[in-house]
Design a protein around this nucleic acid. Structure first.
Lengths: 223, 223
DNA sequence: ACAAAAGTGTTCGATATACACCCATGT
DNA sequence: ACATGGGTGTATATCGAACACTTTTGT
């Protein structure tokens, strides 16, 4: 098929911003580029869209290959199309953002790109416009946390209310009142107590909760 | 440059969903396709991205060419990449959604595609996956109206509180209480009264208001 | 005078915020 | 016994929802 006659030529890249919480800090998955351009620089995991897959499938593939995660919360973020975002020429990037609990991540030892988690504060310069993509994703994450129940995707299947609250505090960057947080979150009806308790701390064991549904829900309307 | 070696080939289309309110009904801009595929079908205005323009510029160009509008509220909607969305082959569409007041629209008589406004209820089948894109845009519009002040982009520079309220009612599809609406909207501090009054109706002339700023603002936070 | 839409307040229930102490466990 | 985080309630302020009549104009 003479595609080059019918269509304007352009590369379509997929880049993924995978967030997770690790040791009380928001982390992002980065790789080290093993090819030009930007060889040796840190970058978001990504790649060109294959002819036989949708952008969503490509994002899922990248996340599977680089972090060993499957079926995690993923949503399209934005399509970046600045003319000079890639020194090789015209490359449009469809960026995705994804959330996962740390224990689901599983790195293969053999990856030349050495994918790894980085604390947000320690991310320096990135290849291409990936810093801008990361910043955009962070804004989306904060907004989404306030309007929806996405927090479920950052936590394991069972969690304590303190862990849930800390998830909010870490991402929003401020402390929340414990009593008010619990009262409000429980009144939303999204989570339910299990009969299990946390184990192993040298303190009172916390009751474990779980989300009733793993589906995105809006939390509030304006009018 | 041997782009076909470096990049996967794919066409990148831009499609635009332009909403406006006309005679108390939400309308959308559609064209009639003058080429295959789907020749003669109604479709969203769109086209292939040119090599020297960003997606945003391409969307602005399309809106300028098809509706004579400039500088209107436009935001990226979603990038659609289903494998078979275009019978010609692999075409990814970056869709935009835009809002404008009806009086800013200005059709050229000479356009073969006959761009025109259609009431939402009268939009039948559309070419490609444009019906899905339109439905997605409508969802975005409704959500955006509840969380932000985008309504300014559907109104002229001066408007009555009743017109503002009707804008909400039309898009949200339900009636709002007049006293509560006014109290609440005025308390947001986004609009201010002018010293002018509406003219010409055979009723009490309404005071005209204007938005203090034409910038998107969030209206409410959850935590 | 009549028709048509503009404009205006109060009450009540629900929700948000601020705030401090006792409890259960491991060492 | 002590250290650590777990768990709980109340009072106040703010916000949302429901609700009806008078005013101003053109005809």
């Amino acid at each position: 098929m003479p595609q080059d006659r019918i269509f304007k030529l352009a590369g379509i890249a997929i880049d993924a911003v995978l967030f997770t919480i690790k040791e009380g800090v928001l982390n992002v998955l980065l790789i080290k580029r093993d090819n030009e351009p930007y060889r040796g620089s840190r970058a978001l995991p990504g790649g060109f869209m294959q002819g036989e897959e949708t952008a969503e499938k490509a994002a899922a593939r990248i996340l599977r290959e680089k972090a060993g995660v499957r079926g995690i919360y993923t949503e399209q973020l934005y399509t970046f199309s600045d003319l000079h975002r890639d020194p090789r020429g015209r490359v449009v990037s469809v960026a995705y953002f994804a959330l996962v609990s740390q224990d689901q991540i599983n790195f293969k030892g053999s990856d030349l790109q050495a994918p790894a988690l980085f604390q947000l504060g320690e991310v320096g310069k990135l290849a291409f416009d990936h810093r801008a993509i990361l910043d955009y994703a962070l804004g989306r994450l904060r907004a989404k946390l306030e309007y929806t129940n996405v927090a479920y995707s950052l936590l394991g299947p069972k969690f304590t209310l303190t862990q849930l609250q800390q998830t909010y505090e870490i991402i929003l960057g401020r402390k929340l009142d414990k009593r008010n947080f619990r009262k409000k979150y429980l009144s939303l009806g999204l989570i339910e107590a299990t009969k299990e308790h946390e184990r192993g701390g040298r303190r009172r064991p916390a009751l474990l909760y779980r989300f009733k549904a793993h589906e995105l829900a809006q939390l509030k309307k304006f009018f």
